[in-house]
């Protein structure tokens, strides 16, 4: 995944079955953000792998005051990359088991 300066990781073990998974997002490189980023902590949230859309969650984070509108694409892409990796690993585990 491209280094966007925003890190997204699993906030819990992925058993490969649950639809919603807890993710944790934080900024590793403030310089890569266009807007001023005031929150220095990690933001934990639940993501439904079937229903949720990364860019929508990113917009919710902007609306919740965590990021500036100009960074919604960067945040969305960071979430999308991590979700894609989770789905890829799940698919690989299933095919290995088959």
């Amino acid at each position: 995944a491209e280094d966007t300066g925003v890190r997204v990781e699993l906030a819990e073990e992925d058993d490969g079955k649950k639809a919603s998974i807890a993710l944790k997002l934080w900024v590793e490189d403030h310089k890569k953000l266009k807007g001023k980023y005031k929150e220095s902590g990690a933001i934990e949230f639940s993501f439904d792998l079937e229903k949720d859309v990364p860019e929508v969650v990113a917009q919710e984070m902007v609306e919740s005051g965590f990021f500036h509108e100009s960074d919604v694409k960067t945040v969305g892409k960071s979430i999308r990359d991590r979700v894609a990796l989770i789905k890829w690993r799940r698919a690989r585990t299933v095919s290995a088991a088959a």
Partner: peptide, 27 residues
């Protein structure tokens, strides 16, 4: 410190907590 929480109007909860210790050293 108690983690802050923000609930978006769409219902998603965002919980803010310190960045994981081991990741701070990497910055």
């Amino acid at each position: 410190s108690p983690s802050a929480q923000v609930v978006h109007s769409a219902g998603r909860r965002f919980i803010v907590s310190p960045v994981p210790e081991d990741r701070l050293k990497e910055q």
